[in-house]
Design a protein around this nucleic acid. Structure first.
Lengths: 159, 159
DNA sequence: TATTGTTATACTCTATAACTATA
DNA sequence: TATAGTTATAGAGTATAACAATA
């Protein structure tokens, strides 16, 4: 098994590290561009703001809860394009760290209202500073006009 | 613990599902746009082409190896912006499924040359068709000019 | 010393399915 | 029946650290 090779013996070990980017047809694929960009952004944030102890995803949850005290898990999931169970994981971790707390709703006892704790507010403030810096790195390469274009074009993909 | 709430009792359970998108300042963050777009693309591919049994990442590895028979893991990693260990995981899984095979290089015995198997070639052909369809869904919402703009702007982030 | 492949390990994000309580 | 939260489970992707073989 594993021996039904398709092109017998060409270029064995002769692949020159091929300078930089030249992936052939692959280069045409917009989806690949998007994944690479996503990866680059993710990587930059982790490398520069990892000490914060929060991922971008976690920050967006804290941010959202900070803007909407009393919000429920379902709404968090819906607003950030997540599954209910995925939101649970996020929320639970943040709760366990004492950054958010819960109060059962009285009008609808199925729902649970979430708010930031004082600690959560404090860390969110730091996180916002980090995000601001990170955004400067990300957006600094564009003019205001290009930035507007980019936002408009990207928004058309998921809205 | 968990009782040091910050805003005593406002909006408990009164959060109206808030129609659609309105995340406040969060909406300004380009990084968030990128993550949402990435998620949407990922989701669409999985939902429509999951039966193929290949992820977009796996396809890009097969595609790359197909274009560069004899390529080594390090080069795959470098060309697709991955860690060596991450590439290992990908490559190993594809190998185990009989889609790629290896031949130790003779000129440099540290390197291993990878090629697609016949099975790999066949599946890649199917995958390319899927990607083409997926790309049509993705790019169909843009004019040719917008598409060029978008590609140019995105490329500026990781190049 | 540097590079290639490897293994072990770990964490984040994601989702599905099934369950409980409530509406 | 439908919704909110929960739990168990799984898989993809990512990375770090340490090791062996080779250059």
């Amino acid at each position: 098994m594993g021996n039904n090779r398709v092109s017998k013996t060409k270029n064995i070990g002769v692949e020159p590290p091929s300078s930089t980017a030249e992936i052939g047809e692959l280069d045409t694929i917009l989806g690949l561009h998007i994944r690479r960009v996503h990866g680059a952004v993710q990587r930059h944030f982790g490398e520069h703001f990892g000490e914060l102890g929060l991922t971008q995803k976690q920050i967006s949850v804290l941010w959202l809860v900070g803007n909407h005290p009393g919000i429920a898990q379902t709404d968090i999931a819906q607003k950030l394009d997540m599954d209910r169970a995925t939101a649970m994981t996020l929320v639970h971790a943040l709760e366990k760290r004492g950054l958010m707390c819960r109060t059962p709703s009285e009008s609808d006892r199925r729902r649970i209202a979430f708010e930031l704790t004082l600690q959560g507010e404090a860390l969110l403030a730091q996180a916002k500073a980090a995000i601001t810096e990170h955004e400067a790195w990300l957006t600094g390469r564009f003019t205001a006009h290009e930035l507007k274009q980019l936002r408009t074009l990207l928004a058309r993909i998921y809205r």
